[in-house]
Amino acid sequence: MQRATLDLWVGLFVITGIGALLVLSLKIGNLETYHSGGDTYVISGNFENIGGLKVRAPVKSSGVVVGRVADIQFSTKTYDAIVTLNIENRYQFPKDTFASILTAGLLGEQYVGLDAGGDEVMLEEGDTIMRTNSAVVLEEMIGRFLFDKASENDDF
C-alpha cells in the first residue's frame, strides 16, 4: 500500500477516535458545565438529617443549578451533618437564606434547595447557613401519620 494512503487512513482513524472521545466527554458526559473550579465560594450548613444526599449533588435555587455539594461530614460536637456547598460566584445569597434538602420527583435524587431571604448582608466564603431544613424521611412521615390517626381515633 502507498505510504500516503496509509497515512491518510491512519490519520482518519485517529481523528475519528479522538472525536469519539470528545463526543463522549462533551455531549454525553457534559464536561462543559464542569469547569466551574476556581470561580466558586464555599458555604456550609448543619442538617439534622441529610437523607440520601450525595457529594456532587446539585444545589438549586428556584430550580436553577447554582452550585454543587462539595463535602458531607458528621459532626461529633453537635451530632448532625455538616454539608459543604460550592456556590458559583455570580450567585450571591443573603445571610438569612433558607437551605433545605429536597427530592427531585417522587423517587428521584436528592438536592439542596436554597430560598433567598431578605437580609442586606450577603453570605461570604466560609459562612454557615443558620436556617436549614432536613430531608424528609419516608418512614418518619408514615410513622407520624399513623400516630396522628391513632390519636384521632381516641377522641371517639
Binding site: 482513524f13 485517529v14 475519528t16 477516535g17 479522538i18 469519539a20 472521545l21 463526543v23 463522549l24 454525553i28
Partner: peptide
C-alpha cells in the same frame, strides 16, 4: 495500545 482506547470510544459513541 494506541488503537484500543480509540476503538472503545468509537464503540461507545456508535452505541449511544
Amino acid at each position: 495500545v494506541i488503537s484500543m482506547p480509540l476503538l472503545a470510544a468509537i464503540f461507545s459513541v456508535m452505541g449511544v
